[in-house]
Write a protein that binds this DNA or RNA. Structure first.
Length: 260
DNA sequence: ATGGCACTGTTTCAGTGA
């Protein structure tokens, strides 16, 4: 079962790039972030025609997450629990069932948090506290589960071309990385690093300053697996090449294959 | 990070992102 995460930076602007990639990569499930669309405006029929079931959790202009799945999507929930006042669309869950296992999938768009300090950074850290609580529940369920998406977290210096440039940024500040590590340390497996120890492997390159051409990137899109899901992990890769195409997102897909 | 870009909105620049 091939499951990908992809921050598309706007569904309207990414129709061609996303459609091309789906055709080539043939993921069973694609967790999308930054659809920047309300649910009613999401071009669901286009993806249904490609054989995908579509579930969205959108909002106007910003944020927004979605799941495309060739397998049926069951028990869909929207929103990260823990704050009824939170209007930002950043979390969606569903269960998919393969030949041998059911897997709970959480698609997430973790807040950027800049500038620091300030209310946006406070929101990021508070959001991560709520995510910690949901992560505990997933582990307690003892089922194969995954939290995947744009974490807006550079876990370690090796995950940036120029870590010094990010020292005081909300993506790399010690407080951010500590909050991420606290979730990981509950017992999750970060799929990419488990299988790819080499440096200079990134999932985001800024549109500015020729970042892609200089491989001046950061690795901020992650897939965290519960132990039961980690036992099924057979592969994890970054589809970096599509960053060099026409009208790309600034992120690229990261995917896992699970023997599920 | 000196700075360079891109997306949405009902636009003609501002807010946001990373």
């Amino acid at each position: 079962m091939k499951i990908a995460t992809f921050n598309i930076n706007g569904i309207k602007a990414r129709m061609n790039a996303l459609t091309d990639w789906l055709g080539e990569a043939q993921p069973d499930v694609a967790l999308l972030q930054e659809i920047k669309s309300v649910d009613e405006a999401f071009p669901r029929e286009h993806f249904e025609d490609l054989g995908y079931n579509v579930e969205t959790h959108g909002q106007k202009s910003f944020n927004g997450v979605a799941i495309l799945s060739k397998l049926p999507l069951e028990d869909v929930t929207r929103g990260l629990p823990g704050d009824d006042e939170d209007e930002q669309a950043r979390w969606i869950e569903a269960t998919v069932t393969g030949d041998t296992h059911s897997v709970r999938l959480c698609g997430l768009y973790l807040p950027n948090g800049n500038p620091t300090p300030g209310p946006k950074y406070d929101y990021k850290l508070a959001w991560m506290d709520r995510m910690f609580a949901r992560a505990q529940e997933l582990l307690a369920s003892e089922m194969p589960a995954m939290m995947a998406g744009d974490y807006n977290i550079i876990p370690q210096a090796v995950d940036a071309k120029r870590p010094d440039a990010w020292r005081d940024d909300a993506l790399f500040k010690l407080e951010s990385r500590t909050a991420y590590r606290r979730i990981l340390n509950l017992g999750f497996t970060e799929a990419f690093r488990t299988r790819n120890p080499a440096p200079e492997q990134f999932s985001f390159w800024d549109y500015q300053a020729g970042a892609w051409n200089r491989n001046d990137g950061i690795r901020i899109d992650h897939l965290l697996l519960t132990p039961q899901a980690a036992d099924l992990l057979t592969e994890c890769k970054i589809d970096a090449e599509i960053r060099g195409r026409e009208k790309p997102s600034d992120h690229v897909p990261v995917w896992v294959d699970l023997a599920a």
